[in-house]
Write a protein that binds this DNA or RNA. Structure first.
Lengths: 214, 214
DNA sequence: TAGAAAAATGGACAATCGTCCATCTAAAGG
DNA sequence: CCTTTAGATGGACGATTGTCCATTTTTCTA
């Protein structure tokens, strides 16, 4: 077991990362200064240089942390889910649009980092990993769905279905970013599933995806 | 006609805005300083304060300018297009994903501003306008399409179709942002139209949207 | 063309930025 | 308990930030 030294060390590292994510979500990247970070973390000025070697590295670590949190949650969800490919797709979509994942804080953080990713290679790197993991999960499911559909000429290749589904979810995130107030989670879910139902009518039923209207 | 005074004045204002957009696309918002801007514009330091009253206002003006350019292009495209609603949707989609609109520079700028929009109200404002204009254009078209479909129980309401289509396009932009190298414009178009064809088979044919495969 | 007005200049300014290190504190090992 | 060593502190530092204005230059008007 780790001694108190190591324990404190890790605790402070995490406190710095959390402080960055809090600040980025509330004030944006441009206002996330060293002073802001250490004030939120309640630590001393030198800690950033000590633990991360500089502010940029800390930002990159925070971006990675946020990304990993997202994926760990999604994969945990998949563990508990059914085995059929349509169930897996459904769980991913539901998970991706669920409140613990898609919320103001996460959306703010995600888009703030993306906006700067182009120019901060350290941040940009994690982005690909994230993307590939999600893409593979969905691609595996759609590959089975397309195969089961068993037509000679499928409406859509598994690759295209994956690409489109991810784009659809990404677009919903953007919608949330731009209109957090009027965003309707059920509506977003309904739309994604209607699109999927139109593409694969045998696999995605509308009834399962849409709450009764009354 | 405007005198040389007014002419120079407007010319310098535009030079500043262009300098901001260039810098944002190349270096990101965080590196777009006053020094960087005036150096690119080849103007003196005081110009920003003189013409815009401060850096923040200039950034907001640049964001608005970029947004207006996007919409003007899209609406010009619509003027020249056919009258049928499916043609209008098709033109919007094609326009939104065309090289003059969806390119590295614009994507960089767009996402950079979005990442900071949450915390800069001046920038956030233009975002709603932009969105509403596009949404209404598409909604009008889908309303006619749904009506023409003439079923009692349409697969999708015009509102949902609009929401989904916009999300799909937004998602393609995100895809371009994250993978500018491997992004395939034709593939993106194909996917959007296959989704639309699945939803409204009578209105969107695959043949029209997909270049021959060989 | 002389005077008035507007536009443009570029440096001064305080404030803030991120980095780094001399110093102090506290846990670990003998 | 004493020594060692890693961790933590907070201020000093030069660089850079955005703002603002006294001054100069250019255009317009009378």
């Amino acid at each position: 077991m780790p001694g108190k030294r190591e324990q404190n060390r890790e605790q402070n590292r995490q406190a710095l990362i959390k402080a960055v994510l809090d600040s980025v979500s509330e004030k944006g990247i441009s206002e996330t200064s060293v002073s802001e970070i250490i004030q939120r973390a309640g630590l001393s000025r030198g800690m950033i240089h000590l633990h991360f070697g500089g502010k940029d590295n800390l930002l990159a670590a925070a971006a990675r942390s946020s990304s990993e949190e997202y994926y760990d949650g999604l994969e945990a969800l998949l563990q508990s889910g059914g085995d059929s490919p349509q169930e897996r797709v459904e769980m991913i979509v539901r998970g991706d649009l669920s409140e613990p994942v898609l919320n103001r804080r996460n959306v703010s953080i995600w888009y703030a980092f993306r906006g700067e990713a182009r120019n901060r290679s350290a941040i940009a790197e994690y982005s690909d990993t994230r993307d590939d993991r999600l893409r593979n999960m969905i691609l595996n499911a759609f590959t089975r769905i397309v195969r089961e559909a068993g037509r000679e000429d499928p409406v859509l290749s598994a690759r295209d279905a994956t690409h489109g589904t991810i784009a659809l979810m990404e677009g919903m995130w953007t919608d949330y970013l731009l209109h957090p107030d009027r965003f309707d989670r059920d509506e977003a879910l309904r739309i994604v599933f209607r699109f999927l139902a139109a593409l694969f009518p045998a696999h995605f039923s509308l009834a399962g995806a849409v709450p009764p209207k009354n």
